[in-house]
């Protein structure tokens, strides 16, 4: 009897500890979101989404240029980064012991740990310094470089979770190797690959450092990736560092917009995958 009481007490204590840990883990997230809402939502209006910044000292204006810039640069980064990252991930999961896969895995682990500002400087050396001007392309390239190792590793881990028996079932049915990989293995992991890609997109959407050296930022509406471009995190950075009280409020609002953009992107990507690949995805 006594032991049972003790056991229950220990169990309750452990469960309590874990709930406490979860609360501690979630707390910063809730605080960030709450602060953003409280400080940012009052500055949000339609014009904020549709207009470019007002000259310093004047009120009004918006961050439309930065929304467009972020969408375009992240979009271009996806075009480069997702195929390469997913492809490399599939390769190293399908040929796990090949030397190429081992090397790629090692490099992408190192890349995953590289500070993003280093990637920014690298992209600057590679593209900006040669072209002799800042550009959205350079920003996209830097973001893609950040995405590739993330996407590759999550894709690989997801594919490794597919039971071997499923692969064998397809091969025993007479599926060629490539078709087994794509139609059965990759297809089964697709929701996981989408999730991994979305995490990467969310992560790079908020990157500031690599863009400082590449896209530079801009106050004007522009859709030319070959020119310096605005981006939401850059705008937050500029406004938050600025001298005016008004700018600080705009920084909060811009940060809120950034989170909204990421949220909408994730949601629509998920809905789209479900539409295209049916309900078993």
């Amino acid at each position: 009897m006594n032991r049972r009481v003790l056991r229950r007490w220990i169990s309750n204590f452990m469960v309590g500890t874990m709930i406490f840990a979860v609360l501690i883990a979630v707390l910063p997230l809730v605080l960030i979101l709450a602060t953003l809402l409280v400080k940012g939502v009052s500055s949000l209006n339609l014009a904020f989404f549709l207009k470019t910044p007002a000259p310093a000292g004047e009120s009004g204006g918006g961050v439309a240029h930065a929304i467009i810039g972020t969408l375009m640069m992240v979009g271009a980064a996806c075009l480069i980064g997702l195929p390469i990252g997913i492809g490399a991930g599939i390769f190293s999961a399908e040929y796990p012991s090949s030397r190429l896969a081992t090397i790629t895995r090692f490099i992408s682990d190192v890349m995953n740990g590289t500070p993003s500002i280093v990637v920014g400087v690298f992209a600057w050396t590679l593209i900006v310094a040669r072209q002799k001007h800042f550009s959205g392309y350079a920003g996209s390239a830097a973001l893609a470089m950040l995405m590739i190792p993330m996407v590759m590793r999550t894709t690989e881990e997801m594919i490794k979770l597919v039971p071997h028996s499923l692969r064998e079932a397809a091969l025993a049915l007479g599926y060629p190797r490539w078709r087994t990989s794509l139609a059965v293995v990759v297809r089964t992991t697709l929701p996981g690959i989408v999730t991994g890609s979305l995490l990467a997109v969310a992560r790079v959407s908020g990157e500031t450092a690599p863009l400082l050296f590449t896209a530079l930022g801009s106050q004007f509406m522009g859709t030319n990736l070959n020119q310096p471009m605005g981006a939401l995190p850059l705008t937050v950075y500029t406004y938050a560092n600025g001298p005016y009280e008004d700018w600080h409020r705009l920084a909060w609002a811009t940060a809120l917009v950034l989170i909204l953009v990421v949220f909408v992107l994730s949601l629509s990507a998920r809905i789209a995958t479900r539409r295209i690949f049916g309900r078993y995805g």
Partner: peptide, 13 residues
């Protein structure tokens, strides 16, 4: 053809 020990229906189909 071959049938295995554990049922292996393709889960996405």
């Amino acid at each position: 053809g071959m049938v295995f020990q554990k049922p292996t229906p393709f889960p996405t189909m």
